[in-house]
Design a protein around this nucleic acid. Structure first.
Lengths: 188, 188
DNA sequence: TTGGAAAGTCAACAAGGCTGTCCTATCAAG
DNA sequence: CTTGATAGGACAGCCTTGTTGACTTTCCAA
């Protein structure tokens, strides 16, 4: 079990980064970082009696307005019943609007209301602030590596979905406003 | 709100990686990757009627045998009651042993039993396998960046704790077996 | 016209967070 | 030796968010 091999001169490249110990460090880093990653939005959500599930719904509806319940279900990877509970409160509270599908009237297309947009922005700005600080601190090269490892960690289907999400500017139904749009937001 | 600035020639360094859009990509990468990260152990745990909380306890007890309940509490960042529920089942099931503290008899020092060690190994090997594949795929430079960003994302206290955990070989109570120990485990 | 997909609903259950309260054992200081 | 503080454990009860299973309504498409 746990066959450990003492390596004398190293093979070709430096393989020390594949050590069980290095892997454990990475695992723990994921655990601690993810906790921090969700901490800021969680504070805001707690005030409003919402949970992480609400944040996730708001995030993906904001990113892709008009997406159907089924698509959202697929992205989030939860059951219809679980999502429905969350979605219902968001709709009741006037943060999300559910319109009957234009192509297929069985489908429901989801949109954020004004108020929903406001909350989403508040939540995601809190989350971005931490991310931005971490990015800035680590630098562009580190960020590239960060993304590369995370992508390599995903299940293949998820990764495909993730990469398709906005990798190509991709026209879904709206012709999509073109223009490269090199935007850079800052504050503080 | 959301002040966007069209950047013509870029400032000094390339700041495109701090774009709100790039930050959003990073946020989504965290979400999807974390889901994958927990997926493999979750499958094993489900078989045995355990949950993620049990895995976390086993992990940290394994990493630091003899740690006290209070230390474990601090690392996990949950309440005593929440941990206790999990710990109790692990002790009842004979995976964890709780010995009276040697220095302070009020404390309980936690150890994995044979069986606990076996399960921990099974869980962590599943998790490491995915991590190893991702690491190998991304390469050592990317891994360095990955860790750098995750560390920058942590709360300062957590980061200090994380870095202290095994950064210096550090003798806690055992004199700690020295020797650099360049080990490299593989299979497949 | 009919089969099946999309959506929604109800009920029930479980994991794992949380708070609050209370108790015991033990240490350390006065 | 007493007394206050600390470590741990237990019980009750609450919440969110995940799950299954069963059932209905709506509506598209063959």
């Amino acid at each position: 079990m746990q066959q450990k091999v003492r390596v004398p001169g190293m093979i070709g490249e430096d393989l020390l980064f594949l050590t069980d110990d290095q892997l454990r460090r990475g695992i723990e880093a994921m655990f601690f970082a993810y906790r921090a990653f969700t901490a800021d939005p969680d504070l805001i959500l707690a005030e409003l009696d919402y949970g992480r599930a609400h944040h996730r719904a708001l995030h993906f509806i904001n990113r892709d307005p008009g997406l159907t319940v089924t698509s959202l279900l697929a992205v989030l990877g939860v059951t219809k019943q679980s999502l429905n509970r969350v979605l219902r409160t968001l709709i009741e509270d006037g943060l999300v609007e559910s319109r009957i599908g234009r192509r297929d009237r069985r489908e429901r297309q989801l949109y954020l209301t004004e108020e929903g947009t406001r909350l989403e922005r508040r939540l995601s700005e809190a989350q971005r602030a931490r991310m931005r600080a971490a990015y800035r601190n680590a630098g562009p090269q580190a960020v590239a590596g960060f993304r590369q490892v995370l992508e390599a960690m995903m299940d293949p289907e998820t990764r495909a979905q993730y990469q398709a999400m906005t990798d190509p500017p991709e026209d879904r139904k709206e012709p999509a406003n073109e223009q490269p749009r090199y935007t850079y937001s800052d504050r503080r």
